[in-house]
């Protein structure tokens, strides 16, 4: 038995109300400890002059830069702009991607018609489309929505489609045996069995949406987190760039976590979780 499994066994045996704070949250506390150690090291590297803060920034500088941005109020506008772009782009991708994925998964002919386009666009790095998007939509809100939409819609569509298409044949037999019509087969078997895949698609789409925000705003914008990072970077304001990175990372982690929790709730729906 390796030491890892040993630890797990021990942690299990120790379970119960009497466990100490440390024992209950050991993994999280270890993680926090590592992050804290890294921050200290980073800070002192600057203090002792081992690295140039112009390039590396430092935790206290990032906090100071963030506080200044909150004080002058600029951060709120950037957050609001990026948030709106995300909500509209991602929302549109869900509204379009889920129904299209369902239809493509269900109707063979519909799939045959759209598959070449989906495959081609899914395989193309969406950033490559950015110049076209700027030509078509300009540099205002609509071009950001477009790039976020294009980044997000394919992972959502493809996963939903896979979910609908990979229905267990046994379930189809059961439904038919109970006299299900095509419509009933769709609503009582195809839709529910595709939910876990659909949620996975939504989660994967999130990451793509965040990339879309940053790339879209760097290409040409007048506000937003990505725009702020772009202008700060161009003027060597490393501290402000770091603030932007932290915001994007935090948003990504938080949103992914929310979807992961929802996904876990539907874990039992996965067909391979039978017996």
């Amino acid at each position: 038995m390796t030491s890892v499994t040993n630890d797990l066994v021990v942690a299990d045996v120790q379970g119960g109300p009497s466990r100490s704070l440390w024992a209950r949250h050991e993994n999280m506390l270890l993680g926090l400890l590592a992050v804290a150690a890294f921050m200290l090291f980073w800070e002192f590297s600057v203090v002792f002059g081992w690295v140039n803060p112009l390039f590396t920034s430092s935790p206290t500088r990032i906090v100071a830069a963030g506080a200044a941005m909150v004080r002058d109020g600029s951060i709120w506008n950037d957050l609001a702009v990026s948030g709106l772009e995300f909500a509209l782009g991602y929302g549109l991708a869900v509204i379009v991607g889920v129904p299209l994925g369902i239809l493509m998964g269900w109707y063979r002919r519909f799939n045959a018609l759209l598959e070449p386009f989906v495959n081609a666009l899914y395989a193309t790095p969406r950033i490559a489309l950015m110049p076209l998007i700027i030509i078509w939509f300009g540099v205002d809100l609509s071009s950001k929505i477009a790039i976020i939409f294009l980044s997000t819609v394919f992972p959502i569509l493809v996963n939903t489609m896979t979910g609908v298409r990979t229905i267990d044949r046994d379930f189809i037999k059961v439904a038919r045996s109970f006299g299900a019509s095509d419509g009933q087969l769709f609503t009582t078997v195809a839709l529910p069995s595709s939910v876990p895949n659909l949620l996975t698609g939504l989660r994967l789409g999130l990451g793509h949406a965040l990339i879309g925000i940053v790339v879209g705003e760097m290409y040409g914008a007048s506000a937003g987190i990505g725009y702020m990072m772009q202008t700060a970077g161009a003027t060597f304001q490393t501290d402000r760039v770091m603030v932007g990175i932290l915001i994007i990372a935090a948003a990504g982690m938080a949103l992914t976590q929310v979807l992961r929790i929802i996904e876990n709730r539907f874990e039992g729906w996965r067909v391979d979780h039978r017996g």
């Binding site: 046994d170 379930f171 529910p192 539907f266 039992g268 729906w269 996965r270």
Partner: peptide, 8 residues
């Protein structure tokens, strides 16, 4: 096969 619907 026991083919109960896992979502029900």
């Amino acid at each position: 096969q026991d083919s109960l619907f896992p979502w029900r």
